[in-house]
């Protein structure tokens, strides 16, 4: 497939936003059960949510560049019963709205305690909003992943690993950003987030490499024989019927030379996993916000390469019909 930068930015940016929100909410949840220190609401959760919302809106903004008719984008909420894309279109703004509300409740201080659980744990409004938003965050990961995983003949994508990778890679990058944010804010959550960021990055490494191994061993069900229905071992295309370009020759081929293709694979394997883990570990030792920020920047750059490779690696069966001019 041809990797479109609009979709690359959409999926990576909202992944960061989702991960960052999950980090914030995890921190709050831990502080409610008194495992972690309570953070100051406006400064930490308010600003943190604002950053998450900024990433989500940037992702949404990027997605419009993918459309031929962005002004009709509202129509895409119509077919949520059958289309994962439609579901994503509904869940993304809903999630963004809930995160904004979560941040607003924290920032404004309009955060009444709803009830007290076992007379120790205070459940306030933000915790409830955060729970809904958490549910939406995971639903959004599911929708984004399923957009690709549900197309069964794009065999590189049609695996549960696609959803798992979207979830883990998004969470890992979000937690890395949360680490940098916590360090910058000077809160005591830096080590907590840093530890989770490393753990999630390692987990994502395992599942992403699992997907790479799976895809390297894939046997494509479609062949020239099934494509044109001629049973002969040797079929060669002599002409695709036109010499100019077409949608079919652009949209489904990445067009990069093999060396570049391989280079990008190794680039993302290095930039998304070992380098950020290394930087996070250094940062945790030195407690330096700038190192965490560097870890996030490197990981995000790596994720762009990862997403490019994710698209480029997928082999569409229609390519069988367009093998030679």
């Amino acid at each position: 497939m041809h990797p479109a930068f609009s979709v690359i930015f959409l999926t990576t940016l909202i992944g960061v936003g989702q991960g960052l929100f999950l980090a914030l909410y995890t921190g709050q949840l831990y502080s409610v059960v008194k495992v972690l220190p309570v953070q100051d609401s406006p400064g930490f959760y308010g600003v943190g949510s604002l950053i998450a919302v900024a990433f989500l809106i940037a992702g949404l903004f990027a997605s419009f560049f993918h459309l031929g008719h962005p002004e009709r984008a509202w129509r895409s909420a119509a077919r949520w019963r059958t289309s994962w894309l439609s579901r994503e279109v509904i869940v993304l703004p809903a999630f963004t709205g809930m995160v904004a509300l979560y941040g607003l409740v924290h920032y404004s201080g309009l955060n009444p305690v709803l009830f007290t659980f076992r007379e120790t744990f205070q459940v306030d409004l933000s915790l409830l909003i955060g729970a809904v938003a958490t549910l939406l965050a995971f639903t959004l990961f599911l929708c984004t992943g399923m957009i690709y995983a549900c197309i069964k003949f794009l065999q590189e994508w049609a695996t549960p690993l696609t959803v798992v990778n979207y979830t883990l890679l998004g969470s890992a990058s979000g937690f890395t950003l949360a680490t940098a944010f916590a360090a910058w804010h000077g809160s005591g959550l830096t080590s907590f987030y840093g530890g989770w960021a490393i753990l999630l990055t390692v987990l994502a490494f395992v599942t992403r490499v699992a997907a790479l191994i799976r895809n390297a061993r894939i046997r494509h069900k479609s062949s020239l024989q099934t494509a044109i229905g001629v049973r002969h071992v040797r079929i060669e295309q002599k002409s695709q019927g036109f010499m100019a370009g077409s949608f079919n020759t652009r949209e489904f081929f990445h067009g990069a030379p093999t060396t570049v293709f391989r280079l990008i694979k190794w680039t993302f394997l290095v930039l998304v996993f070992p380098v950020p883990v290394f930087l996070l570990a250094i940062g945790l030792g030195a407690q330096a916000a700038v190192v965490f920020l560097a870890a996030f920047a490197v990981q995000y750059l790596g994720l762009i390469a990862e997403r490019w490779f994710f698209f480029a690696q997928s082999n569409h069966p229609q390519n069988l019909y367009y093998q030679t001019v």
Binding site: L224, I228, V230, H232, R234, I235, E236, Q237, K238, S239, Q240, G241, F242, S246, Y321
Partner: peptide
């Protein structure tokens, strides 16, 4: 579109 294939050796 019409494509052309060669089948056989």
């Amino acid at each position: 579109r019409v494509m052309t294939f060669e089948v056989g050796e």
